[in-house]
Amino acid sequence: MIKYLFNYIIFPGFLFTAVIGLVASWIDRKVTARVQWRIGPPWYQPLMDLVKLSIKEITVPRSASKGLFFLSPMIGLSAITLVSTFIWLINIDPGSKGFSGDIIVIIYLLTLPAIAVILGASASGNPLASLGASREIKLVIAYELPFIISLLVPIIKSGGMLRLGDIIAYQASHGAFLSSLSGIIAFIVMIFCMQAKLGLVPFDMAEAETEIMAGTCIEYSGMLLAILKLTKTMLMVALPLFLITLFWQGFNFLSLWKYVILLVIIILMRNTNPRVRIDQAVRFFWGKMTLMAILAVILAVKGI
């Protein structure tokens, strides 16, 4: 139990993921700054932001449902901690960690942060937050469809394996799924879904600062906002890691470059695109992305 607690809180769970996430978000800000011909912040800036937020005063709107308003950021944080612990442990020791069907559990746990954000925003009783929540939930159901379909590609290619550890082992002996055509297509779809799950441009309509003033986060301040930001940051570690595990032979510390590549793709995508409207996003995911995912599944069934 102590060992699990250590895993959960320090390594590779909360603290470790958070540190990597903060570094990644610094890289994100630095690269963004360079793209925009600025110098960018020093390496400790993301941490400083969190510290600053956490000593600020918290305000609660009068119309809020207080219990849920306070709890939901923490639900999101503990869910993302749990799921990143899962993914790290399985990657460190694919042979013995995990259980049959853990992919499904991870998929469900990965939606929990989004649900927590939505519930928290709805609980604030602010009309703009409600607007953000409605966009967020629409985005969730939009990207969930191609995400699930392309998730099937590794399962089909490995012959019905449902344990993440087995999928890593299968790739170790048969080569990464990314080396096949179906794998590449599914991976591309997954990258778009990841962008939407992270809520980054072009899919940041739930927070859209310029039109609904941070939408889902509008009423959050101080410590609670810090927790929400930290959740997003940790998601930026867990999601690419999950993709690498599924398609790219898993992750060990020698293959840090895989993570960096995905990070660069995320950053470039958010810097070169404008925000889309929510109906455009739904059409995009249910249209093009779903068709691509279906194509990938068909190819995977054919063994290509």
């Binding site: 956490s54 918290i58 305000t59 709107p61 009068r62």
Partner: peptide
């Protein structure tokens, strides 16, 4: 949250 919450909670109107 309780450790870091130095200033306490202030109830305010919704901000739009």
């Amino acid at each position: 949250y309780f450790l870091g919450n130095f200033k306490g909670v202030r109830v305010s109107e919704s901000y739009i």
